[in-house]
Design a protein around this nucleic acid. Structure first.
Length: 436
RNA sequence: GGGCUCGUAGUGAAGAGGCCUAUCACGCCUCCCUGUCACGGAGGAGAUCGCCGGUUCGAAUCCGGUCGGGCCCGCCA
């Protein structure tokens, strides 16, 4: 009967059996230590028998082993317990030398990322790399937990579409039984439609962006958390919900994974329950005044402003997450709602965290006639098949609603303090990488 | 798409016209070592210095091209 690494200490004085991967050998002559890795972590095994040590000869890191031995309490062993008088059985022999190191931290220098991803299959077995994706899983878990607790229904929408309609990013064209289709760059239309069913919905799914962007914050396949909620009383309801969700997930993860985050050298979390909010115009004005670079005519924030306002908010508001609201009407998409109190701005806020935009949170125009009007103003044809089904939902009644498109990869990157969004993705896809 | 950068054993780095028959660390192989946990010690194998061409008596090093990365901008989340 197999027990796990974390259970060895509960079986002191008993003959136990563990199974896992050979993680590290340390031969000290008459005494050999090996670490065996399983899903819970490492078990230290002490081997003194020459014949048992000889079984390990030529076997590389990654060998799948069964180890039977006596569980001993041992203060000198990691975790306070180890296996002694061990008998080793090789379940899957491995003779190939791993191309990268498994038991020492891997280089994450930008110049070495290509090697990191080239050997990703084995590099992910590195304990430090594995921690990144455990933390990612926890973030997703707590985001989901918050959304379920707030009556959001999890949905799945199609990723193969007839044509690009959301506007914005470039799309991938694919061959669809001889015809042309595109990969979804956002589930936005579908989630808005679904507010007509459940009021509150969310989806965690990939989105595909064919942008020729080669930066530390872009990939071709991203994991998006898309949220949409109906019957809002104003844009603030959306911002509050997303804020509370992020606060919930980050504080939980920082508590649960304190040790892992520390070993990954993640920054200390500086967060307030209520995130500071500044308008785009305010940020432009403050940034221009502080740096001398005039951004007052920019319609969006420039990347350096995103960094600057986050540093400003951390210092002055004690919060690394900050909302930038009221984007200028020049940047608006046809589905945005114009600010009723100020027609030069749109009900649209971006959530920034540690210098990077991680979510965009707009309120949508929900009035059918106004939508048609706004589409025509943008030169779009409401009769176009790409808009037909979408508009049907409005025609038959959608409440005031808004939501967010939330970049999971970027959240993981910034939570851990990584330098490139790709480091937060198991197998990243960018303009020049499609494998592994 | 534009600008700027970088390609040296499996991995990470040093070398910046001759001292290079290319150095170091990790990993690998052999040997020694009974409490290691980045174990330690001795030895060994492993690189046509991304590729092509040029300058030079001489090129890892300088120049041109090419291929492949990276960073930033634009675009975008």
């Amino acid at each position: 009967m197999r027990i796990l690494s974390s259970e060895v200490k509960d079986h002191i004085g008993e003959e136990v059996q563990i199974e896992g991967w050979l993680h590290k050998k340390r031969l000290l002559g008459g005494l050999t230590f090996i670490n065996v890795r399983d899903r819970r972590g490492l078990t230290q095994v002490v081997i003194t028998d020459k014949d048992e040590v000889e079984k390990l000869r030529g076997l590389q890191i990654g060998t799948v082993l069964k180890v039977e031995g006596m569980a001993h309490e041992e203060p000198r062993a990691p975790g306070g317990a180890e296996l002694k008088d061990a008998k080793i059985t090789v379940l899957v022999p491995v003779e190939a030398e791993p191309p990268i190191e498994i038991d020492k931290p891997l280089s994450h220098k930008p110049d070495n990322l290509d090697t990191l991803f080239e050997h990703r299959v084995l590099g992910l077995r590195n304990l430090q790399e594995a921690k990144v994706f455990k933390i990612r899983a926890s973030l997703l878990r707590y985001l989901r937990e918050f959304l379920y607790d707030n009556e959001f229904v999890e949905i799945n929408t199609p990723k193969i579409l007839a044509g690009a309609t959301e506007g914005g990013a470039e799309v991938f064209k694919i061959d669809y039984f001889g015809g042309e289709a595109v990969l979804a760059q956002s589930p936005q239309f579908y989630k808005q439609i679904m507010t007509g069913v459940y009021e509150r919905v969310f989806e965690i799914a990939p989105a595909y962006r064919a942008e020729l962007s080669a930066t530390s914050r872009h990939v071709s396949e991203v994991t998006m958390l898309d949220i949409e909620m109906g019957f809002i009383e104003g844009h603030e309801d959306v911002l509050d919900m997303v804020q509370d969700m992020v606060y919930h997930a980050l504080t939980k993860v920082y508590k649960e994974h304190a040790d892992d985050l520390k070993s990954l050298q993640a920054p200390e979390l500086v967060l307030k329950e209520k995130f500071p909010r500044y308008t785009v115009a305010q940020v432009h004005e403050m940034y221009t005044k502080a740096t001398g670079t005039d951004t007052t005519n920019e319609k969006d924030l420039i990347p350096d402003e995103e960094k600057w306002i986050c540093e400003y908010a951390t210092k002055n508001d004690g919060c690394e997450a900050v909302y930038v609201t009221q984007f200028p009407v020049e940047a608006m998409k046809f589905y945005h709602m114009v600010n009723p109190d100020d027609p030069t701005t749109v009900m649209w806020g971006d959530l920034l965290f540690r210098g990077l935009e991680i979510a965009t949170c707009p309120q949508r125009e929900h009035n059918y006639d106004k939508m048609i009007e706004q589409m025509k103003a943008k030169g779009l044809d409401p009769e176009h098949p790409g808009y037909k089904y979408y508009l049907q939902a409005f025609k038959h009644g959608l409440p005031a609603h808004g939501g967010c498109g939330f970049g999971i990869d970027r959240l993981v990157e910034k939570t851990i303090g990584l330098g490139n969004v790709k480091e937060a993705i198991l197998f990243p896809r960018d303009i020049n990488r499609l494998a592994p």
